[in-house]
Design a protein around this nucleic acid. Structure first.
Lengths: 351, 351
DNA sequence: GCTCCCCATGGTATCGATCCCACAAAACAT
DNA sequence: ATGTTTTGTGGGATCGATACCATGGGGAGC
């Protein structure tokens, strides 16, 4: 008998029944000791705990999740982890989940609607208790509320077409608008917008902020949507800077555009902010180290991830999936460094 | 009956038995159609597939994993996703896992050995089929081979003390050494090393490469280990540059140190590479955009993640956990841009 | 035409933990 | 002293999919 036990301990993982047998109690008692929800005699608890240690017993979360219809895990779908912005979001999500004792199942859509759909299905097969998603493309995503049944889903950074989803966003439009207004305050009148194609919600929203600020100020709009590659950006910028009416200031749509524009600026030997003022959307790690330090719209990246995940846990614990989702929009900050023409020695932050 | 079915479809997720009943077959047949391992009549398969579609049936991966003793998931433990280097690693791991049809359970240790240990235990409770880990601190980690039983574990970027673990690393020492040699080729004799405390394996290995290169060249070592904060770095650098024997070139230990050193250099108004040549360890996204473009040792970050994960899947599918783990060391590249004093218009890569 | 075998399919037990119910003993009330 | 409640504990069914074994029908071979 003893030997059998030893063999069992080596060959397969010990189960609750093994513990119960060794402690001389029923399996239910072991379960109760573990969950701690029901009173158990001090002596019995002691015996069970000794047996657990002796066998190095570890509860099988798989069995527990299966039986309890609760996986204690949430899914996280995002386009990529290669982009530090998304990675920061993921960090926040994982941190909140850990605080709640939940696991995070991670997967990437590469921004592709079909991949996104397939991965969402995988998540459902794994019976995640909820899902946090940075959706792919607004017009093309195949994620609908009905796909998920009762499983709560929170979208963040970008919305989903179906208004039944909860969504957490930042003030893309207002942020871009405020940034342009600041450039105007510096006396600029020919302000160009350089960004990616407008198919992404955030990119488009930022462009709209630019457009409104320009219109409201009675200025002529001057926008490029081709910053998908370094060559393209360089060509566009070189061409535009040649003309009589060359822009005196530039706003970019995101860090990728910022990167390409910065690189082009270096190639062309343009001096910032003297020849050309610069403002970017989305802060990044080296923005205040490079010279000149970059003026940017800063998104509350981590907070967005935290808020989205907390909202998800609200839905999970309350067990409700409302017909109309919440829409939370977080404020952005304008971080004034030097590329816009400001002279501060240290950054000034406008809320 | 029909109504019962409809109610069932709404109230709870349809099970394999529901499908079997609707298709007029046994549950096993449905299972066989799904797994596709055993022959099933075309007509039966058709009926089952129709029923699956009609009920919108989705297999319960939780039950499957539980029954099959295989969770089809791997765990990923790393210090943080806030660092783009780790995020890139995670991207690679998740990509390989997806190719194999596996899920990734993600968790962060924050570089804390105790958190790391607890999270490893959670992974085991979840019965992951294997684990990929970027360990916390070599001397303090509590991860031992015996903790994991038969579950394969691959460490990467940093090793674990227990040689039974598989590990995938990069040539930290050789890379740093080669970089220093390059600076020496530029004619530098007073080359300083600026980095973090040496408790991290990679940081220490890079320092050793620096030390060896200096010794072999008969030069005097000049190293700082206090680049944990911006203020500290600025103070250290300012002090060192004042002296008669101020360094003419600097090598940093990693991107964090690079960041602080760069920032300090900007504060002090030092010109790179004229006043001071610069070389960093670890490439990053903007390294070739800032001016001057940075000369760095480039790690095969994505490949390291891929190799580690593929090795893990080897262990998983073979079902063996050898007494002595593999040790794979990947080559690094020297990317010569302009901060070291090179004049190339475009980067030159040395393998 | 008969036997034998193979193939498609179904029944049943099982994975490990938990929920519901039952039951015994102790504590309390009358 | 007897009935009633409380409390601790155990037994059995169960979650959904799959492995093993059983079985019936049809085709091949003599």
């Amino acid at each position: 008998m003893k030997q059998q036990n030893r063999v069992a301990a080596v060959d397969r993982k010990p189960t609750m029944n093994d513990v119960a047998r060794l402690a001389g109690v029923g399996a239910m008692t072991v379960s109760r000791v573990l969950s701690g929800t029901v009173r158990v005699t001090a002596e019995t608890r002691q015996r069970v705990e000794t047996a657990i240690k002796q066998l190095k017993y570890r509860p099988n979360e798989l069995a527990r999740a299966f039986r309890g219809q609760r996986s204690h895990s949430i899914g996280l779908i995002l386009p990529s982890l290669y982009d530090p912005f998304f990675a920061t979001c993921a960090h926040a999500v994982a941190t909140v989940a850990k605080e709640r004792g939940y696991s995070v199942i991670l997967t990437m859509s590469n921004g592709d609607p079909d991949t996104e759909y397939v991965e969402a299905e995988h998540m459902l097969e794994r019976h995640v208790d909820g899902l946090v998603v940075i959706p792919s493309i607004f017009r093309q995503t195949r994620l609908t509320r009905s796909l998920f049944g009762r499983t709560p889903v929170v979208a963040f950074d970008r919305p989903l077409p179906d208004p039944a989803f909860d969504v957490v966003l930042v003030q893309n439009t207002a942020g871009a608008r405020r940034m342009v207004e600041h450039l105007i305050e510096h006396g600029h009148e020919r302000i160009a917008y350089m960004g990616l194609a407008r198919s992404l919600f955030t990119i488009n929203a930022r462009f709209l902020g630019y457009r409104r600020a320009m219109r409201d100020a009675g200025l002529k709009e001057d926008s490029f949507f081709g910053c998908e590659s370094e060559e393209n950006t360089l060509r566009l910028l070189a061409e535009k800077l040649k003309g009589k009416n060359a822009p005196t200031a530039i706003l970019t749509s995101n860090t990728l555009a910022t990167r390409y524009v910065l690189s082009s600026i270096a190639h062309l030997g343009v001096r910032v902010p003297n020849d050309l003022a610069f403002a970017g959307f989305d802060d990044f790690d080296l923005a205040d180290v490079i010279s000149p330090p970059l003026t940017v719209v800063r998104q509350p990246t981590q907070e967005m991830g935290r808020v989205a995940t907390n909202l998800l846990f609200d839905r999970i614990t309350r067990g409700e999936t409302p017909h109309l989702g919440s829409r939370i929009v977080l404020p952005v900050e304008i971080v004034l460094r030097r590329s816009c023409g400001c002279k501060h020695r240290t950054p000034v932050v406008i809320h």
